[in-house]
Computed example of a mutant assay.
Amino acid sequence: MVFRMLVQSNNANGETYYVGDAAGWGFRVVGWEDGKNFKAGDVLVFRYDPRVHNVLVTDEAGYTSCVPPSAQKYDSGNDAITLGSGDFFFICGVPGHCEIGMRIAIHAV
């Protein structure tokens, strides 16, 4: 399962990516991941206002439908997630946010 491939600690060998760059994790961030070459050990940092957003790690079906059957939830406003290898799907779990582009799909080798 995807969740066991995520590690909560920083890896000194990976790159650090700030999701959404200077704008952070917000509306219409979908596509931010395009053109990036993610590797196992890279760290994604999600910065956002935790009063209005969160981060859910889900599967492809949850990403596509914006209704995850199960998900790991982050809600600190400054979440660092280290990638394993494989496909990873992240959405905002606040109703309506995923549908307007608050989601990314990552493939790490």
Rank of each mutant, 00 (worst) to 15 (best):
Y74W: 13
F27Y: 03
H97N: 12
D75H: 06
D49F: 01
K36R: 14
V55R: 07
M102S: 03
I91Y: 00
G26R: 06
S65G: 09
N54G: 14
V45L: 05
Y63E: 05
K39Q: 09
M1G: 15
T64P: 05
H97C: 08
Y48N: 07
G26V: 00
S9G: 06
Y18L: 11
S85N: 15
F38N: 02
M102W: 09
W25M: 09
I91R: 03
E99R: 00
Y48G: 10
V45H: 00
E60D: 11
S76K: 14
G93A: 08
T58A: 07
F27N: 03
A108Y: 04
P68Q: 03
G41W: 03
W32C: 13
F38S: 02
W25L: 04
G93K: 06
R103P: 00
S9P: 05
H53W: 14
R4I: 07
T58F: 01
K36Q: 09
F89I: 12
N11K: 03
G20A: 08
A40F: 00
I91C: 08
A80K: 15
E60K: 13
D49N: 15
W32I: 13
H107Y: 14
Y48T: 11
K39C: 02
L6T: 07
A105Y: 09
C92D: 14
K36N: 10
G26L: 00
V109T: 10
R51V: 13
G31W: 10
V2W: 13
A23P: 02
G77N: 12
T16K: 10
W25T: 06
D21P: 01
F90S: 07
G93L: 07
N11D: 15
V29E: 07
K73H: 10
S65E: 13
Y48R: 04
A23R: 05
R103M: 08
E15N: 03
D49E: 12
D42W: 03
A22V: 09
V109M: 11
E60Y: 07
N54K: 13
L56E: 12
V7I: 13
V94T: 08
Y74C: 12
E33Q: 12
D75Y: 03
N13Y: 08
T82C: 03
P68S: 02
Q72I: 15
Y18D: 11
